[in-house]
């Protein structure tokens, strides 16, 4: 009975994997096609002009594509780092200190998880324009730093992975609260914070609405926005499909690399959980 069922889940998972990976394969194949080949050759036949496409992408408006990639890296890298730090500190405070209004703050954060970021973009724009911060790098970074979901995750993680005894022992030894947080709690929370970092990195990298509303200067655009301007040049000119497809391929590479390198932290995470149990 069990043995017969064994094949089915594997099959379903394989189906799921194919469903997720096929678009990636499509991008990979389409990026090798020239404009002429893109719509005239079979979907799965590999084209001959990957190098030419990359060259054209590189040359597009004086290499502005790489500027966009660098911007994305800045927004996602710095934003996710700050976000992980903030989430860690906030999550720790919410998990380990009993203070008035804790439940209220936490519930407000949970409510924040439910509000889609898209809805907030315009109010955030209006607020930031009051302090003259629109069309700056900060205008995209600041709203990305606060992640209700990240804080929620960090709180759960702090409650589970930082034992009360350890904190008490440190207090008895005379360590200050800041020291306890910095030298004891945060290091214990690293696997959780890596998770927050990854989630935030991906969501900032893929974010569209916020930078779209905030940024006017195309030199500050992240890569998502830049590719969109290449796609929508007005109906008088065709979309630069080949460049956009090639650009998409290039822009997912950093995400793949990041996941592959940070994956081992997740494995440690699972291990440490097992040891504790």
């Amino acid at each position: 009975m069990r043995a017969r069922l064994g094949g089915l889940p594997t099959f379903v998972l394989l189906l799921g994997a194919a469903y997720c990976l096929f678009p990636v394969a499509w991008v990979l194949i389409a990026a090798t096609k020239s404009t002429g080949e893109l719509f005239s050759t079979s979907t799965l036949s590999v084209g001959s002009s990957l190098v030419a496409n990359l060259g054209e992408l590189h040359g597009y408006r004086g290499g502005v594509f790489w500027q966009w990639v660098a911007n994305s890296a800045l927004y996602a890298g710095v934003g996710a780092l700050l976000s992980a730090a903030l989430s860690g500190v906030t999550g720790y405070a919410l998990a380990k200190y009993a203070f008035r209004g804790r439940a209220l703050i936490f519930n407000a954060l949970i409510a924040g998880v439910l509000v889609p970021a898209v809805v907030l973009a315009i109010p955030q724009y209006l607020l930031l324009s009051k302090v003259g911060l629109t069309d700056t790098y900060l205008s995209v970074l600041l709203p990305s730093v606060i992640s209700p979901y990240g804080i929620y995750l960090a709180r759960i993680y702090a409650a589970a992975s930082v034992p009360e005894d350890v904190v008490e022992a440190a207090r008895t030894d005379g360590a200050s609260e800041v020291r306890i947080l910095g030298s004891i709690a945060l290091p214990m929370m690293v696997p959780g914070l890596v998770t927050v970092f990854l989630f935030q990195f991906v969501s900032i990298w893929n974010n569209f609405m916020l930078p779209y509303i905030m940024l006017a200067d195309d030199g500050k655009f992240p890569v998502t926005l830049g590719l969109y301007t290449m796609l929508k040049q007005g109906n008088t000119t065709p979309a630069l499909y080949t460049l956009v497809v090639t650009g998409s391929l290039v822009s997912v590479l950093p995400l793949i690399a990041l996941f592959l390198t940070l994956q081992r932290y997740w494995r440690i995470d699972l291990l440490s959980g097992a040891v504790k149990a």
Binding site: L126, L128, S129, T134, Y212, D218, L225, T229
Partner: peptide, 21 residues
Amino acid sequence: SKQAQGDDLVTKLLTSAKGGN
């Protein structure tokens, strides 16, 4: 500053005008 053409750009213009910049 190169922008993407379309209805979204109208929204963006409206928003930027509301924000005063």
